[in-house]
Every structure is written in structure tokens, then in C-alpha cells.
Simulated assay, not measured.
Amino acid sequence: MPRFRAELERLFPDKETVFHHLGNYLFNPSNQAWGLITRFYDAYLARADERIGLQVRVFNTKASPIPLVAKQLLKCTQSEGILPQLQVSTKVTNNTSSTKTKAVLIGSLYREFYEEMKYEYWTRASVDVHQASHEESQNSESNSHNMKALADIYLLSLCDVLVTSRWSTFGYVAQAIGRVKPWILNVPNTNYSGDRLPERACRRAVSMEPCFHYPPSYDMKKKVVVDGEVGTGPPVVHCEDVSWGLKLVNGRQIERLG
């Protein structure tokens, strides 16, 4: 509401950290969940020079077959320099003092993404691939399932680089808590492109803030509730992955978008 705007401006001068602060204040994992997070992090991620989180959400495995999505994920990480290009070689490469070690964390319901990435990089001693859990299907009624999901979110938030999936609130929370601006994976859909991969594998998000998929009808320019499409304007823009959704950005990012 307009009367709260001045107070919100004082509370959140940096528009791209609103959810970061609120999320870290409101999300408090239990001791058991923190145990999962810290044990996995210390065992597999802590000693790497760089931690890379790959969060893959597939809503329909028939329209988006896992092998096709895995190819797109590999294309994204290599084309954007997140992971090294693969070279045809049967010789296992060893670490050198100049090689940065990378710990790759797969965040997905499916184990196949871990297995595919592990297979691709088994000859690269500088790249280790890990997955904390793979539940195969979503089961929100299970506390155990939800605790593993929360652990995955926090582990992803501790990564230096993130690749997330379009439409995924799971990825939104991880990027915001970790204050990481992610690359958004363009998940292929055979209903539209057949077996061809979209030319653009992924794109960089303009801010770390999550996308509000179904925003209220409030016009930022007129500062009134309206019917129909919401007007955009500082500090609100349409999302990269959901065209009608809205997200917060700083003014300099709006200038870059324009």
C-alpha cells in the first residue's frame, strides 16, 4: 500500500536483497536439517576452490526428457564457462597447482543428472560431482522429504555459481538466500522444439530476487490498484523466465535492460 512505501524504502534500500534478508530471517532449519547441511558441506564442498550448484527442475519428463535436459545443462555450463570444455581423451588428467578445483552440486529429484555429469567429468580430477538427495518424485506430505529439500536449498545457496531452472521456486529461494545471481536454464520442451535443443541454453538473471508468478494488479507508475496487466517501473520488471511475472531490480539494472 502507498502509505507503507516510505518505510519499505528505508528497510530495503537495495531492492535486490529484499528476499535475501527476509528469507534468512524467516527460514530457520531445525538442528536435524542443519546437521544434514553441515555434514554434507564439510565432506564434499568445503575444500573446493569453487562451488557450483546446478538446480534442475523438470515438471514433465515426457515433454522434457531427462537425457535432453542433461544435454542442455551441459551445453549451458560449458558455453558460459561455468565448467571446462570436455576434450576427447582416455587419459585421466591430474590436478596441477594452477588448476582450480570445482565441486559441483546437483540439486534435482532425479539421480540421472548426477550420473550424467559424473560420467562426463570422471576424467577431470579438478571437477567433483555430488548430489545430496534424489527423491525421484515430490512428496510434500513427508517431513523427511521436506527436510531433504530444505537441506538442498541451503547447500545450493552456499555455492559460488548457480544454474537454476525456469519457473522453479526451489531455485528462487536458493539464489536469494545465497545472494547469487543465477544462470537460468532454458529447459527444452519437445512439444515446441522436437528433439532439438533451444539455441540459447541459458541466460543470466538480471537480479537475485525471485519471480512473483502471479502478482497483484498494482500499477507501479500510477501507484493504484488496476484491472488487467500490471504496469512495470522502478523497481519492478517482468521476469526472464515467466513473462507475466514480476521481480525486483535496482535502478541500474533497469537501465541495462532498456
Results as ranks from 00 to 15, higher is better:
L83K: 11
P84D: 02
P84S: 03
Q85G: 03
Q85K: 03
Q85T: 03
Q85Y: 08
L86E: 02
L86G: 02
L86N: 07
V88Y: 13
V88S: 14
V88Q: 13
S89T: 03
S89R: 04
T90V: 07
T90I: 10
T90H: 05
K91E: 14
K91I: 04
K91G: 06
K91R: 07
V92M: 03
V92W: 03
T93N: 15
T93D: 15
T93A: 12
T93V: 14
N94D: 15
N94T: 15
N94H: 15
T96V: 15
S97N: 10
S97V: 14
S97D: 14
S98P: 04
K100S: 11
K100G: 14
T101P: 14
T101L: 12
K102N: 03
K102R: 09
A103Q: 02
V104L: 05
V104F: 01
L105C: 11
L105V: 11
L105Q: 03
I106C: 04
G107Q: 09
G107H: 01
G107N: 07
L109R: 07
L109H: 08
Y110T: 02
R111G: 00
R111N: 12
R111F: 12
F113H: 05
F113W: 05
Y114M: 05
E116W: 02
M117L: 14
M117D: 00
M117A: 09
M117R: 00
M117C: 04
K118I: 01
K118T: 05
